[in-house]
């Protein structure tokens, strides 16, 4: 009995300690949310706004001719993230399927090339990539913002691995029934690899939504800014004057990733735990 009671107490203690840290971890986000409803202009660390108001959010919605329109940036970020995600899923799953199931000479070489390229940090290609987009006149376009996110090397490897591990019977059965490669891909493989595609889709969406350096390099026009860039412009415009508005803009930028997390936690946890992805 005493041993059991002892263990229970230890468990309660560990839970309490973890809870304290978890709350500490959540505090900056709570402050952000609370400050976005703060009417008083003096910054401070209150858990609840001292003078609650919707004015900060209204200012984001209706910029009234101010230089920075956060909602245009929000729209840009959404377009780029959604387009990148949809195209990455299509392009990477097709390539992964080919590498897993369609025999061709050089299969191993292609896979080796992909794995070798994964060792090269993307920062190496920043300068030449900028050059290429510049030569094609694609700077300041959605194309420039989205394209680099579509080619997910890890995505192809992930999808290929998932398809290789599928039981071969289903695909063989479809092939015996006379299904061609496209039909097998579309009606057999894609439905079976949904978990892998969900993980990849979330990764590409977040990668695109959160990206800072590439939009910073590939856009110069304010109307093409994505949300992370607009946050910076916004802060230098209002940071000293109206801190509630700045926090509202930060709250706006973190809401979509947190929503994704809320609804797809299982996939995100599995994605990071199993593949060690994307740091």
């Amino acid at each position: 009995m005493t041993a059991l009671a002892h263990r229970r107490r230890a468990r309660r203690l560990a839970t309490a300690a973890a809870l304290v840290f978890a709350i500490l971890w959540g505090l900056p986000l709570l402050w952000t949310l609370s400050s976005s409803f703060e009417g008083s202009t003096t910054p401070g660390s209150r858990l609840l706004p001292s003078d609650p108001t919707l004015a900060n959010w209204e200012m984001l919605v209706d910029p009234g001719g101010r230089a920075v329109n956060i909602f245009i940036a929000f729209f840009n970020s959404t377009v780029v993230a959604v387009v990148s995600t949809v195209l990455a899923l299509l392009v990477c799953s097709m390539a992964g399927y080919a590498l897993a199931k369609l025999p061709f000479r050089g299969n191993a070489a292609v896979l080796g090339l992909l794995l070798a390229t994964m060792l090269i940090p993307g920062e190496v290609v920043l300068v030449p990539l900028f050059q290429q987009f510049r030569e094609l006149g694609l700077l300041n376009t959605y194309g420039a913002l989205a394209l680099p996110h579509i080619v997910s090397l890890l995505g192809v490897v992930l999808v290929r691995q998932f398809i290789v591990n599928l039981p071969p019977d289903l695909i063989d059965a479809a092939r015996s029934d006379g299904a061609n490669a496209w039909q097998i891909y579309r009606y057999v493989v894609v439905p079976l690899i949904r978990p892998a595609l969900t993980t990849l889709g979330i990764l590409v969406f977040l990668g695109s939504w959160n990206d800072f350096l590439w939009p910073l390099i590939s856009t110069s026009s304010p109307s093409m800014q994505t949300l992370p860039l607009a946050l910076v412009t916004f802060r230098s415009a209002y940071g000293d004057v109206d801190y509630g508005v700045v926090m509202a803009s930060a709250a706006l930028a973190i809401t979509p990733p947190l929503l994704v997390f809320l609804f797809a936690q299982r996939f995100i946890i599995a994605g990071i735990s199993n593949t060690g992805l994307k740091g």
Partner: peptide, 12 residues
């Protein structure tokens, strides 16, 4: 609580 921040944009 610990994983949430990992998904947020660095700018924010």
């Amino acid at each position: 609580a610990f994983v949430g921040p990992y998904l947020l944009p660095g700018a924010a």
